[in-house]
Design a protein around this nucleic acid. Structure first.
Lengths: 328, 328
DNA sequence: TTGAAAGCGCTAACAA
DNA sequence: TTGTTAGCGCTTTCAA
């Protein structure tokens, strides 16, 4: 900036004002300075500007990954949310700082805020970090979590209505005449717990007895569906429907069914969850519960900016929607 | 920092040294200061530190999107690369600034560098921005592009060996006895052009005549495969193989084939490109050319850091690999 | 309409 | 082993 000032024969104060389009500056002076800046590829240093202005237009997005498997930026649903957050932030003129942290050093997220690199944090992947998240919130770190609301929760969540989603999926199968509906998912995860509750409610409404043998814990990894199918088959039960708590789970399950000669939807009607891009391309096209990805990004960003502004905010529950396709 | 200094009864210089673990500082003083900092949730302000140190550990990742469709953070392959870049940067202690920009205002990427927000830029999606990219490189913006090498290219690229990839895919189909192999892809894109060249080379090696009617331009969108199949059928040609330039394209094509009663691989053997996560879960499981995603992130990051350091760098070509599955 | 000067939060040369 | 001081690149008050 001082280079420009010297070349333009003015002070740095004038250059600063000119480049910030201050009305104080003479029209002619301003264009001269602007051209000079352009020809030198000069742009105001944002770091210094932020320091002086005590402002910051950066939001951190933190994706915890399991320290063992390292996976989980591979989950298409999470990646989709990431894209929608990026869009929402870009629209509002904010930068997005993307960080992957090991699940067991989650307070890296707080660090990003403490060190002033971001004015707030969006965390994707609630998993079982409830306590750590509460601690951060108690420390007044502006943090918004994609996930489910839990009792005694101090942090702000934005999530889809998992209870309703679970009901939708199960009711759909029941309406298709299925009566023995298996459930695949890890009920220890808050979001899955809600979907499970929806599943039970739907059964109750239809007066179908709940059979806990039909509930198979399944992780959201590549082999989750395959293993869950094996477990289910080992139990030698009758079943004619499956509600899998993620599309990936549903897809691997369907492939496993096919391998042993069970057809979908004839022998087993399957409903997934998420409505990832590939659900539609799968064969048979997957019936699933759509989580509203674009709205999710918007809501997360709105929430974190509001927290950063110390404005009060309430948890957000987004609508889910059943997308009926060939698998059921 | 001055608060801590006051509470600890020392100067800010001492606090600074203590928190930076300077050996000059008395052990006892340091622990006292560290505890004080911890109890106040204080961390050094990175912005101010960077300003003073004239350093910066942030790399920008820019994903251009088509200004009309807005899509393309939905492409699973790109999203995978994003994850691998995030990992590579995290491993080296760098932050990642993620930005989506409209394809027609690509010099936003240069702005990020000019304003000092990042020391370099990784751009995912070469598309047809050759000239704009050259301009940036000429301006000495440290930029690395995921894509293909093109003659008269001033910017640095990291990409997979698309020529070899195209050959692998085509040779595989030829070895399976296919002789009339269709090609789906937009040859105006540099990467696709190389794959197409590989396709032609393989045909030549097997002394199979090239028939340009088998080449169908197809965009990498949802409907790309479907439209390409329609076009191909309208030409009323005989064909028994298909090399589609992305897995998504291959999958939508296969679904279209199925709708009109053509079976895969019996009637048409299909090979895709990318080996996205879902290629394996698709039915029939998709034969495809794997691009090495983890290596891609590593190479991109190494390249951009090297450019930022003003070290000379050469373009990188990563190995591709044929993954044979049921679709062929 | 412009400039001088102070200060954002930090670090490091120099002095003690 | 610690403190004083200047300055990183910028903005803005106050004065001219």
């Amino acid at each position: 900036m001082s280079d420009i000032a010297r070349l333009a024969g003015v002070s740095t104060a004038t250059v600063s004002r000119a480049l910030n389009k201050s009305p104080l500056i003479n029209e002619e002076t301003r264009t001269r300075i602007e051209q000079l800046a352009k020809s030198l590829n000069y742009s105001i240093n944002v770091g210094a500007q932020n320091l002086r202005l005590k402002q910051n237009r950066t939001v951190a997005v933190v994706v915890p990954f399991d320290s063992v498997t390292r996976q989980h930026l591979s989950d298409p649903f999470f990646l989709g949310i990431l894209g929608s957050i990026a869009d929402a932030l870009t629209d509002r003129g904010y930068d997005m700082l993307l960080t992957r942290v090991s699940a067991d050093e989650l307070d890296t997220a707080a660090q990003i805020y403490d060190t002033g690199r971001a004015i707030g944090v969006i965390l994707i992947g609630q998993w079982r970090h409830h306590d750590q998240l509460n601690q951060m919130a108690a420390r007044r770190v502006p943090i918004v979590v994609w996930g489910a609301q839990i009792p005694q929760q101090l942090y702000l969540t934005v999530g889809s209505d998992n209870l309703a989603g679970g009901r939708l999926a199960t009711e759909h199968l029941l309406q298709k005449g299925r009566r023995r509906i298996a459930f695949f998912g890890d009920v220890l995860l808050p979001e899955v717990a809600d979907r499970f509750e929806g599943y039970r409610q739907a059964l109750r409404d239809f007066q179908i007895p709940f059979d806990e043998k039909l509930v198979v814990p399944a992780v959201f990894t590549e082999e989750g569906g395959r293993n869950a199918v094996r477990t289910l088959l080992e139990r030698k039960l009758v079943f004619d429907g499956l509600f899998a708590c993620s599309d990936l789970l549903a897809m691997t399950a369907i492939n496993s069914f096919r391998e042993i000669g069970m057809t979908v939807p004839e022998d087993v009607a399957v409903v997934g969850y998420d409505d990832i891009e590939l659900a539609r391309y799968f064969h048979p096209a997957l019936t699933t519960v759509r989580q509203p990805i674009a709205a999710a990004g918007e809501a997360l960003v709105a929430a974190v900016l509001s927290l950063a502004d110390a404005r009060p905010s309430v948890p957000v529950l987004l609508q889910t929607e059943l997308i009926a396709r060939a698998s059921s």
